[in-house]
Design a protein around this nucleic acid. Sequence first.
DNA 1: TTGTATGCGTTATCAA
DNA 2: TTGATAACGCATACAA
Lengths: 371, 371
Amino acid sequence: MAAEAVIPVKRQSGKNQAVTMRDVAQASGFSPATVSIVLNNAPLARYIAPTTKKRIEEVAKKLGYRPNIMARFLRSRRSHSVGVMFFDITDPFCTPVLRGIENALYQSSYVPIFADAHNQKNRFERYLEMLLEHHVEALIVVANWLFVDIHLLADLSKRNITAATIGWEMPGDSVSSVMVDNEAGGRLALEHLHQLGHRKIAFIRGPKMLIDSAPRWKGIQKFAHSSGLEIDPALVLQLPDSFDPNSGFEGGYRFTEELLQKKKRFTALMAFDDLTALGAIRALTRAGVKVPEHCSVVGFDDVPLSSLAAPSLTTVRQPLEAMGNLAVNIVMEGVNAGLEKRDWNISQHKMNPELVIRDSTRAAALTGSDD
Amino acid sequence: MAAEAVIPVKRQSGKNQAVTMRDVAQASGFSPATVSIVLNNAPLARYIAPTTKKRIEEVAKKLGYRPNIMARFLRSRRSHSVGVMFFDITDPFCTPVLRGIENALYQSSYVPIFADAHNQKNRFERYLEMLLEHHVEALIVVANWLFVDIHLLADLSKRNITAATIGWEMPGDSVSSVMVDNEAGGRLALEHLHQLGHRKIAFIRGPKMLIDSAPRWKGIQKFAHSSGLEIDPALVLQLPDSFDPNSGFEGGYRFTEELLQKKKRFTALMAFDDLTALGAIRALTRAGVKVPEHCSVVGFDDVPLSSLAAPSLTTVRQPLEAMGNLAVNIVMEGVNAGLEKRDWNISQHKMNPELVIRDSTRAAALTGSDD
DNA sequence: TTGTATGCGTTATCAA
DNA sequence: TTGATAACGCATACAA
């Protein structure tokens, strides 16, 4: 595998001669100080003659001057970069979040430094080190479970680095966070099944390790209680803890097989997340139970592949891109506050989920009518 | 949608007091120069007394000294960062590549600066600008089509920045590249169908815009020719050019509908890539044609969702992670060569694809036996 | 074997 | 309205 044909081609070499501010100063006939003031549009730029400004800007453009962020940092302490740490980019959950973060950062001319912890604590810490060395102005952590000690925090706030987490919140209230309202989401999903007339519903709960699991289940229980729906404990399973974000598929598959073996009838299945749901659908299909004809299935997250699945998946959407966006806004607020020596507020956000109805659910009245 | 509950919490403030090399010097009783030499293990470190070394290292660790990459850059011209530019991270193709790049970079203690062009030329150029401002030591571009002018190159090599592309190669031979051997891949897929006994095969070719399309088709034609397989032009369609990486699904769906309307029988369908294949499968299923019972379908790429699809997809795997890895090795070689003022070779690599047989294909002899 | 001095490209303070 | 100069943190040539 991956043997390869190499076609060596030609040689390279060259000189690295970036044009500096001094070059612009010399070429324009002004001093570096003036050039700096003009090009940064500093407060003092108010007092610079318009003709001077114009001249300097022209020369800068003609020479192709680019500010040297590194040198600038030495004085201004601004790196124009933000650390973006994923616990595992392999999780399909992450891509839209990354897109949201990247896009928001781009608007502010900030650059994301990408880090992926591969779910390993030591890798997380090493990356944290590297990000600090690169003097990121802020840190965004995308995770859905916890291995991070509180003390890492101390390090961050000591260095005045604003942080925000997505998909997970620090115990206590020491770091800003953005999460979906899991309880509302759980409720939404069950409500949908209930409205479709389903009464015998199986559940595959999330692993204890994940912070999402408990509130989602709480939303389910609350709705069940308020609507008089009975949850049969024999139809409730809980996924084991695992570090592999794609293990949900496998888990959904196995647990659904298990549910089927119990010979307890259910007309709908609510999975912890989309991958679990997909695994469940495969198990059902293999067992000759058609989705949604014989059994409805609902997921959670609305990861990109959910709309592509067969059947396409009814699910509870997390506004992933918007969450990435919001996290950036939060840390940028912190950055700006720091710059202006203001205090600012840490905040914990719960975004509203949204039910997306697709092909994997249908009315209970129709269930079984096809066979 | 996305209305939200905000829970403001408490306030923050703090002082940013990083410990510098001078601090270490003072605390250890040596000069900054000695400290620098020891901590960087510079050539002169050979002459430093072991006790001195030990003392300095201890103090550095105790104080939590972290080198300031920015300041270091000013002298050494090394930023320890690499620009990683994606044309569209939304393409499922990209995630494993990113993982491969990140992992290789991590081994070398380099940090990836992430950029996503959203398929827009101006965004690409703006990001290029930003990456240059951040003085990345190298650039990796992940793309499968071209909107980049050759002159951007000039800018890079003028600044002595090594570059490599993944999934696409510059016209001419001015930049290193890593691609899959598309021709071999096309051949592999068709060979598989042929071995299964399929003779009436439909094809959905890739858009002209994509560099992969032509060689894949060439591989198909060559195999067909050498094996005596006849390709019915009425069963060959070509996807239109599009900037949306996920449009393949839609295209696969529509074109398969079209193929079905022709009432020309085919027992297998070969799609340009996995997304196209998934779209095709949906169309077939909707039309009552079961996959693989009535029709086999094969894709290309082996993106992460292909194994999760229903049925799981037989496809030609690109070693995406390995490709990311290799690209890093290539640019690192360039970086090191630059450092040592050696010349180095630009190289163009073709990785071997691999057939992954899953549930969407089966022997033609069995085709149709289920209904 | 270790220390001093200098400069990398910017920005900010002060002076002119 | 603009210019000279110092300082940011580090690495190196040279001196000791």
